[in-house]
Design a protein around this nucleic acid. Structure first.
Lengths: 291, 291
DNA sequence: CTGTTAGCGCATTCAT
DNA sequence: ATGAATGCGCTAACAG
């Protein structure tokens, strides 16, 4: 009979079943390549399970997030995938608790331990990366960039601290304060010259690279460089940049599947899943990677 | 009374009103910075008008697009914003016509002239950019990269052709065929050396830059460079890259507002809107831009 | 101007 | 097995 062009009405169906076949996705910025790839995978997995994805961006502002949560509440999403902003407002947590649908936090945990989360090993991966710089004989390692109020930046910074502490090296940390170009320039030309830089995310990594090259210093000979987080151009640069590569697609698929499982009652209890990031060896650390 | 925590049920409301307060957004790839910024603005404008955005990615495959359209149909989106894939399948056009909601095409037009669209002046902006290279005294200008089956690439290529034709210069076009690195290398070192490159989108522009720098040629002295489409790193590179800057945010806001107007019946007839891209002068073309 | 009611289209129950 | 009836929660029409 469907040949007569019968189309079930989703509204009526939802009214009855109380399910919208929709999941909500809240990320800080869709223009950040990390979150863009995340969103892309979420959408792909969700659609295969016949769920539509409603997108919202929080700009890392808890108030925005709260607004979006109420929108999702109105639209009756069946599940929620979100990257929590830096601080969890009471408002937000309250909405999350009243929201009667499964929630999975991505990239950053949610305060309460009763929420599921899918994270990567920021701390140990950062430690390994910095350890690698030390193995290359580096002793003055600058830890560069990042908003220290973000969970991931905090964790990576801790990893850096552990690595240098183990080697008896004094930590040297410059988070996002003022102009990174100037900061980098000061540290690679001053009397207390730095011989390696660990970029806490893609932006400072690239700045470190460009400033160094611009001052006619060699990478990795004069300054060795590793960044946290891969980015499209890292491999294309003349001295290709060694990075900690986060398995974004796998993280995203895991998070989405976990959410779908929770929604279908397959999994009941909340889960904290951690997936390891790996170092992607290229030239900037001092290794000659296999081609 | 709402203090007792009354929440209207969107399903029931939609069942009655026949409107979902939802718009559908189909883009080729959310991981493409151009479309990511587009999506970001769409979401922002839509939310201010109290509409939720359902995201779908077509991967530039008409079949994917058709699938997504049927999903949107089921979810009863009130309007549709899409970047049409290269060729319009009959299937797709048929669905679009049966879909009884307003449709706005973005970045690329839809075959039928009865669809609204918001585009930029790919052709004339490209022509101006190439003309600018010619004004810098360049005569051997390589037009590089891009899928020639895409509308935007075709238009930009036409702009290039017009500019060189006016100057009596032989066109030299290499679309995406094989390894761009090799192609660039051959063209800047061969006997028929190229003295300028026009990148048709960000990727080939950056490849042109890196290959040139890697071969120790100077930009802009040896090779002058302009790219179509700005990208985050273009301004950060040592020889900052002059680009045709598309007003993405404005394009996106215009498209979304047009869609909202169509949905609310404010605007009835379909509109073709074109917004001009501007050249963003930096160093790679040979200009010394004001700082 | 406030209060009651019918019906949106589906899914589920109950009767046949 | 197939078929008729009820209600999901809201909105709009209508009655008091």
């Amino acid at each position: 009979m469907a040949e007569l062009g019968y189309k079930p009405n989703q509204f009526a169906r939802s009214l009855k079943s109380r399910r919208s076949k929709t999941i909500g996705l809240i990320i800080p910025f869709i223009t950040d390549p990390f979150f863009a790839e995340f969103a892309s995978e979420v959408e792909s997995v969700a659609r295969r399970a016949d769920y539509a994805v409603i997108l919202a961006t929080s700009r890392d502002m808890p108030q925005f997030e709260a607004d979006e949560l109420t929108i999702f509440e109105r639209h009756q999403v069946d599940g929620l995938l979100l990257v929590p902003p830096r601080s969890e407002l009471k408002v937000v947590m309250k909405i999350l608790r009243t929201l009667s649908v499964p929630v999975v936090a991505f990239d950053r945990p949610l305060a309460g331990r009763d929420f599921s989360s899918v994270l990567t090993n920021n701390r140990s991966a950062a430690q390994l990366a910095v350890q690698h710089l030390i193995d290359h004989g580096r002793r003055r390692i600058l830890c560069l960039g990042g908003d220290p109020s973000l969970f991931t930046i905090q964790e990576r910074t801790e990893g850096y601290k552990s690595a240098v502490a183990l080697a008896g090296i004094e930590p040297l940390i410059q988070h996002d304060v003022g102009d990174l170009n100037t900061i980098v320039e000061r540290h690679i030309t001053g009397k207390q010259k730095v011989d390696a830089i660990f970029g806490l995310y893609d932006q400072p990594t690239l700045i470190a690279y460009e400033v160094t090259k611009g001052l006619r210093l060699r990478i990795p000979e004069d300054v060795s460089l590793i960044g946290f987080g891969d980015f499209a151009f890292a491999a294309m640069l003349e001295s290709s940049i060694t990075v900690v590569e986060q398995p974004i697609a796998e993280l995203a698929r895991t998070a989405t599947r976990l959410l779908l499982d929770l929604m279908q009652g397959v999994t009941r209890s909340s889960q904290q899943i951690q997936i390891a990031s790996q170092i992607k060896f290229r030239r900037s650390c001092g290794c000659e990677p296999p081609t």
